[in-house]
Every structure is written in C-alpha cells, then in structure tokens.
Nucleic acid binder design. Structure first.
Lengths: 330, 330
DNA sequence: TTGTATGCGTTATCAC
DNA sequence: GTGATAACGCATACAA
C-alpha cells in the first residue's frame, strides 16, 4: 500500500505538504493542493491511521462497553451516543463484556493502551475501586447504571422515583398486595428501585412483606420462576412490578398458566419501555427512560472529558415517564 | 504515561530486552526477565498499542458491521464470533451502519486505514462492485446475508430451502392460500426466501398469486400493515409466512384486531427463532438458523484470511430447522 | 542472551 | 506557502 511519501514524490512536494492538504487544506496554495489531490487519487492513497494515531496519540475511537447487545434496552441509548459521536467525528465501537470481568478487562486494555480515547460504561463488572482508578486516569463515563460515590460522571434516571411512580400507579388502581421481582442483588439500579417500591408502600401505610420481594435476574425465565413463587403463596399478590419488560413478560407467561386474567385478577408493570412492551399481548405498562437522550448526554460528557472542556454538571439525572397500557388498566 | 524506555532504564536493560519480555519471554534469561517484570510492575507500565500496531502493521481488532445491534437475530451470531475471537486473541468491535451507506463507509475506513485487521459484514450497504473491491484488498467475510457471485467468502443458510420448509409445513396443515410478507426488495435473503415460497406452492400445484406476496420491511409495523392488506382481500389467506419473527408478530397483532383465531382461522410462521418467538403469545412457529455456529465459522474464516491460511471452503451453508409452535398448529 | 540501530507512517515544529 | 526533519512507542534484524 502506498504511503504519504509516495504521494509527495508523485506530486513533487514534501510529505509535510501532503499532510497539510489532508489536515489543513486552507494553508496550502490552491494550485499545489490540486496537484496533491490528483496524486492521491492516482495512486489511490489512503492515510494509514496507525501512523497518525501514534503521532497524535489519539484515535477518535470511543467504546461502548455493555453487558450484551442483545439487551433491547440499549439500542436507543446507542443511537443517542452515535448521533453525538458522528457530529463530532468520533468512531463508536461496541463491546460486550458478557458479564465476565475478565472479558471486560481485556477490552478495557484497549483504553489503557491508548487504542481508545474513552469509554462509556453501561454496566461495569469492574470492582468499585478499579473503576475509580480507571476513571481517574482515563476518559470514562457511566451511563444508565452508575455508582454515585465515585468521581466518575454519569447519566441516568432517578430509579427510586421511577419505581415509586410504577408502584404508586398500582396502588392507585386499588392494589395492596404488590409483588416485586427485582434484578441482580448487587446491581445499583435494582437496589434503587427496591427503595422506591418500599417507599411507595410505606407512604400508603402498607406493611412491606418480604415474601412479596423476589430477587432474580433481568431475564424471561427469572420472571417466570419468581412469578410461580409469588402465585403459590397463600395470599397471592394482585399486582406484580418487574425490574424489566422481559421479566414482566416472563411473569405474564406464568400468570397465563395459572389462568388468571390480566389486569382484572392480576396487574403487571415492567420497566424500560422496550419495543416488546408495545408489541406484547397484552400491551405492557412500563417505565420509559429517555434512552436516546441519555446516550446523547453521556457522549457529550465523554467528549468534554476527552477534550478537557469545562464540565458544569458531572451527575446528570433525566426524567422517566410512566406509560400505562393494558397490563395494568382496563 | 511511562514507555518502554522508562522500563528499560529502571531495569537496566535495553528496550529490546523489555520488548522480548513482553513478546518472547522464553528468549530472555530468567533473572533478567524477573528484573524487567519488577520494573514493569513498579512503574505500572502499560504497552502503548499505538506504537505496537504501527510497528506490526496489525491491531488484532476485527469489526462486526451490521445494520443495528437492536436486531435480536444477531446476538447469538455475535456470541459465536466472540468465542472464536477470544480463543485466538482478537478483539471484536461491533459497529452499526444504521442502513446508511455513508456511515458504513466511515466505519470501513477503519479497515482501509489499517486500524482493523478484518471485518465481518452482516448486511452490507455497499454496492456489489465496491464490496468486491474491498474484499479483494482486505480481509472480509460475509455472514448470514451474502452475495454469492463475489469472490468474498460467506457463511449462511440455504434461504430458499428454509422458506420452502416453512411453506411446506403450512401446506401440510392443509393451507392453500398462503400469504408471504417479505423483507426489503433488494435484500438477497428475502429474494431467496421468496423463491422458496414460490417453489413450495408450485410443487403442490398451487397457482402463485401476486396479491398474496407483500414486499415490506423486516419490522413490526410492516408486519401489521401488510397483514391489514392481506386480510382486506376478498379471498383472505388462511396462513401467513413472514420474513422475520418481528414481522410475524406484527401480523399477529393485526390478526387479533380482526378477531381471527390463531392458528384455527389463520396460521402464522416467522423466521429466525429469536427469543421473542418463544416468549410471545401465542408461541410462534419459526425457522431456526444455527446462529452461533454461523458466527463461529465466519470468524474462523476471517482468521484464515487474515493469516493467509489455506481455505478449503469459501462458501459455507449450514442447516436450518423448522420449529413448530402454537401459531401454526394446535 | 543481550544491545544497537532502524524504520513503521504520520504530524508538527521550525526555518526559509 | 513550503520543505526538512524530529518525534511518537514499539519490534526486530543484525551484531556482539
């Protein structure tokens, strides 16, 4: 493959001038510029970014590190990130950690070794301490999932409030026995949402019953299993608040096995407003997060860090929205 | 940040020796090695891959270029790719083209400029000619979606046969009027599947009616709209074969609006066996592709190209499987 | 087994 | 407006 020297020879200029045509065209005399551009065309020259990156010590590549792209929640967040990235000439690459700390660490080595200019972390596997360390040395932003007593900027919603509004909606519908199927025990957002669940009940003077709180995973199967447990209780819940839409759909599947009517005999509320919530039968009541905007804010934050811009607000909370559909209201 | 020279000074060796410890440890005397490793620890040295990459003219980074990660079909394919990549010390980065040729081209510049060692293309926006050109100069593999008269290796299923088996299943259930909701007009797999649809009908001596063939998109809304068109025909189809699971679910949604019973009054078959097909109500009959294996084969193929290994088979077809569920059979 | 020296391809500083 | 050249950090051919 040809390099900048070949172009320079072909156009009878120095490599410096070729570089200028590439990066600061306005500083080159028009005539010279034309000659260089012609040469570039003729020998089909493509700048080698490996050289450029080394020289500049920057790649304009930014990674989105998430659990797994199969999680439908992320798609719109990614869109938001991509939009801002594109506008600012950054490349976005997405990497899965597959919930494996070792795999996550492998990808983070791309950051440590300068291949990436920054990273947006969606659901870190890293220990708090290591995350702090990483954030202190490299450009890192937390998005959606976050740990707030670190000095790492984040964009998220107020999960406690969001869960509160979901449960409040069920209370308003007259439900008293409300089950909660949570996510992973050590996932911050799940803990925050549990607080919101409890707070809503307390506020209404309802005793919190541990038997109604199930810690599970975010998955479909988890939703099925935990619902089976809830429905085998003597005093069955008349409503279930699930940590994600998929979990809620697992719940509905099980409810169907028990031949209970939704929402008449039992109501279900999910979380995330993923596309399936609108497509499912019955359509699912859920909490919408401003996913695209979260991505946009996160990427802007990351750019500000990379470029050492002043950052006004390192902790950004955006508004959620309760979306009421068939699964909780006739 | 410290570099290889700092380590060399600290350990009182040459940079060459440090490099050897990093890359060919067995060629260094044990005692020296220990000293170097200690120095690396002490100054917390992390090799700068920008330098290494330039020197080696390789990054061990490989891109999966797809339409959008939100498509649930890809998740298991990606898993397969990741598995083989991990085993062979390659980094996998995923990029969306968002069906935008310009965006795709931007990402492909990473390949052209040597930032990537290769790319697996899931659904190219590139013109056939440009794809051919790209494949002739760089390591490229087509996966799932493919154009077969190019000299670019691919891994896929036999879409015609797969569609045939879906339609044959419906015929076996006694259906004669079978609608087909296709994908994009210029998507190879959609064309191939249409052939399979037609072939199955012909084989059974059934006249192909254009009114039963709807060209749409792969989406939910497309499924809804096209089904509305099909159900407003005087002679309604009693079965619908959809190009994807999501499209099939859109179809079901509309069928429900018409208060038709599935599968008694109308049967539905999807394509891809994505997780939603099992979760949906009713559970969806569909065609399963060996997604993980497709990913594995594609990545192995790509590695073989990158490393200039001999390649026995450049065109790999894997077996599909018909999965019969509630939406087509009681 | 180790050190010296070179070059990968580019950009940016400095001089003209 | 342009050219000469150093430097980015590393791996490797060659010499010792």
């Amino acid at each position: 493959m040809s390099n900048i020297k070949d172009v320079a020879e072909k156009a009878d200029v120095s490599t410096a001038t070729v570089s200028r045509v590439l990066n600061n065209p306005h500083t080159v005399k028009n005539e010279t510029k034309k000659r260089v551009q012609k040469a570039i065309q003729e020998i089909d020259y493509q700048p080698n970014m490996l050289g450029r990156n080394l020289r500049r010590s920057s790649t304009r590549m930014v990674m989105i590190l998430l659990e797994n792209v199969s999680n439908p929640f992320y798609s719109r967040v990614i869109r938001g990130i991509e939009q801002i990235a594109l506008e600012n000439d950054y490349y976005i690459v997405i990497c899965n950690n597959n919930s494996d700390p070792a795999q996550e660490n492998t990808y983070l080595n791309l950051l440590r070794s300068k291949v990436l200019d920054g990273v947006i972390m969606m659901k870190p596997e890293l220990s708090k301490k290591k995350l702090q360390e990483l954030g202190s040395r490299f450009a890192v932003v937390q998005c959606c999932e976050y740990i707030d007593d670190l000095d790492i900027p984040f964009v998220s919603i107020n999960n406690k409030k969001a869960a509160y509004s979901a449960v409040k909606h069920l209370l308003d519908q007259g439900h008293q026995n409300i089950g909660f199927i949570s996510g992973g025990q050590n996932v911050p957002s799940a803990q925050q949402r549990k607080k919101g669940y409890k707070y809503a009940l307390q506020e209404s003077g309802i005793t919190i019953k541990q038997k109604y709180i199930k810690n599970g995973t975010y998955g479909y199967k988890g939703g099925m299993e935990k619902t089976r447990e809830l429905l085998s209780l003597k005093e069955k819940p008349t409503a279930i608040f699930a940590i994600s839409d998929i979990t809620a759909i697992g719940a509905i599947k099980t409810i169907r096995e028990y031949n209970l009517k939704i929402p008449d005999e039992i109501a279900v509320v999910g979380f995330d407003n993923t596309s399936i919530s609108r497509m499912y039968n019955p359509e699912l009541t859920t909490i919408a997060q401003p996913r695209k905007e979260m991505g946009q804010k996160a990427m802007q934050l990351l750019i500000d860090i990379i470029q050492h811009n002043e950052i006004k607000n390192k902790n950004i909370f955006l508004d959620h929205k309760l979306i009421i559909r068939e699964s909780s209201k006739n």
